[in-house]
Design a protein around this nucleic acid. Structure first.
Lengths: 143, 143
DNA sequence: ATAAACTGAAACTATATCAATTACAGATCA
DNA sequence: TGATCTGTAATTGATATAGTTTCAGTTTAT
């Protein structure tokens, strides 16, 4: 899958910690990617109302919501994330053979079902959960 | 994700319908890929005991189990399928920043969790279910 | 006013992943 | 004993994804 989801979650967690307006350059530096990609991803989060943006001097990105009320499903829907998919299709729809002509459709149904399953799981994880997990992991690594 | 899973499921469904020994060439023709790839995938299913193979003249692949007792989880485990993953990692583990150094680990945990979720779902689908779904889809498309 | 610092968006390039191809050793059986 | 398979590996080619560059539009400080 594409890693836009990771960029978005990382970005929001960072914004939530800093609480001020952050430029795409600073975000890109923390995420370890380039500003253009950060802007592309964050623009989608803005359209979904998850963050706010400000153009011009001193502009950037800002997260003003309660971190316990924003879950990862809202983020993956804002980005239209596909967790499970396969561009390659087995068989050939234009043959009389039921299996050769139908298998790709059946597999697509399965992938679609798995995607919805993943999205429902993402609904159970909030930005706050991530933040707490980061803290826990850091403590564990010190032990 | 890789499409080996689709090749494997398609192959087993086809073997289950034909009931006789089928060569990699015939399987490849139905799946619409090349014999070498079919052999690579089917060899793993053989190691897992899902199908049997026969080398030499008149050799090939054979599925002798009850289709209602082989589920897709056993196939994805035989192939070590990873449904959800991302090779790209955000941040950098070698920085003091808790977020930049910890986010990739947290995302990997999430992906791992989603993978296990998908595998459990695959446990609920058998080869027989796929066969029945193919029949149902064909009827629907005629209506 | 206007110059500086930012986002938004698109085009283009580089790279990594995955499937196709080719080749050949080893097994099996007529 | 030679024809026909599988098993496996190396190489090539196609495609998907991240990086780079560029520029128009917005906002604000001075």
């Amino acid at each position: 899958m594409t890693s836009e989801f990771a960029v978005a979650v990382h970005g929001v967690v960072y914004l939530n910690q800093r609480k001020v307006t952050i430029s795409s350059e600073e975000l890109a530096s923390n995420v370890c990617t380039n500003p253009a990609r950060v802007r592309k991803v964050m623009a989608k989060l803005k359209k979904a109302g998850i963050i706010t943006t400000k153009e011009g001097l001193e502009g950037g990105y800002h997260f003003a919501k309660d971190s316990s009320e924003v879950n990862l499903r809202s983020i993956c829907e804002a980005l239209d994330v596909t967790f499970v998919s396969s561009s390659w299709k087995s068989g050939n729809v234009d043959t009389p053979c039921m299996i050769a002509s139908g298998m790709s459709g059946v597999m697509d149904e399965i992938y679609g079902d798995l995607n919805e399953l993943c999205r429902r799981r993402m609904e159970e994880i909030t930005i706050k959960d991530i933040q707490e997990k980061l803290i826990r992991n850091r403590l564990d690594s010190k032990a």
